[in-house]
Design a protein around this nucleic acid. Sequence first.
DNA 1: TGTTGTGAACGCTTTCACAGCT
DNA 2: AGCTGTGAAAGCGTTCACAACA
Lengths: 236, 236
Amino acid sequence: MSFPSGRRIPEAAVVRLPVYLQILGNLADTGVTRFSSDELAALAGVNAAKVRKDLSYLGTYGTRGVGYDVAYLVHQIKRELGLHRSWGVVVVGAGNLGQAIAKFTGFAPRGFPVVAVVDVDARKIGQKVGGLVVAAEADLPHLVRTTDAKIGAITTPPSSAQSAADALVAAGITSILNFAPIVLTTPDSVSVRNVDLCVELQILSFYEQLRLEPGAAVAAAPKVAPNTLKVVPASV
Amino acid sequence: MSFPSGRRIPEAAVVRLPVYLQILGNLADTGVTRFSSDELAALAGVNAAKVRKDLSYLGTYGTRGVGYDVAYLVHQIKRELGLHRSWGVVVVGAGNLGQAIAKFTGFAPRGFPVVAVVDVDARKIGQKVGGLVVAAEADLPHLVRTTDAKIGAITTPPSSAQSAADALVAAGITSILNFAPIVLTTPDSVSVRNVDLCVELQILSFYEQLRLEPGAAVAAAPKVAPNTLKVVPASV
DNA sequence: TGTTGTGAACGCTTTCACAGCT
DNA sequence: AGCTGTGAAAGCGTTCACAACA
């Protein structure tokens, strides 16, 4: 509602900024230094008016008749998303997915180093996973404090996901990426994003089915996903 | 636009149906046979009016003064989402994530068996991953035909993701789950859902930052994510 | 009485269209 | 002339509030 200097970016725009950032990063890598809203729109699969509106929420950084500067816009989007600092990720659950995330080398360079992996299973504790040693879930408060982790990723079986969430919240984590196929119960001050692959597959199957059914047809292009995000004033 | 019998479910509602389905499944497992919109709303973290509207798109299946039947609603949601049949998934890219997906036993029971894993790397071809043998990406057309796969999951490095998408499309796949951090170019007749974990982390960091910045505050609860979905008439 | 189903109001998001700069 | 920035309009999605009904 309120915002430091009256500026406020609509949620719908916030979720598109990382997509623009990615594309602009690719453009920069190929030596492009300037782009127009038309060009970015084509690459992102949206329309130019939306790109201009979205970018206008960041400030007035374009040049009429010319376009936008790639490097400058990358900087501004990063600033807005808080990507000029690093956000440590602690992975809860050292199963297949947890290990895949811990081993993935693509997060750290983009500002999201995996700083710890924990599990409740004594057989997993002490194992090495991608340069980290699996710690006990009970150590979360200590680990979060010492590593300054800011985001928790839940990759446990569904039956342990809620207790994992409770442990993360107790340890002071307020942003959770949940891969378990259950709806977590968390305080309103905690942001949760659900990445339930079954949900994604079910949505795909709905549209695939429309394509298979004779006579069925849809025209619109839905862009939403079943994520939940709760955020309350910082003072609470 | 048009729909067989004039019925049409808004996209925003479609993405919530899998969430309801999951919760109702859990309720059924614990012996619950009836629920009210209030109860489901509390469990799903939405409000009761939304639940009633969403369920009303399926048909008139509730009983005034009483509520809804769990088993019956599960059946109706499954029917709507096309979950009374199985949707084979072919994984392209046998790296950490691809292997984690292939090994995960939670998809098949929910109607999404992983029927094949392919890679371009000759060293990976022939390896066994969760009961499947990694095949060559060049075999995709043949594999899709013989396994009747309907969904493709791209878990390759970003540099190979577009060619993976092209190969899937050429093999006749029209629904793609993309884990690579790039925007895919596909025909309009192909549905793509992007599950870019960096995008999710970046969105989380935006809200985390608001919480850390003194004086910052947001009130609304955004529920959208940067997915793209393109669907065209079945006849095309 | 209790709960659904749903028009109508509201608010957010997208799109249009053009004024304003370069 | 070209492209941005932005009010205003249109389109969706959510919420309200209550009639309908078991």
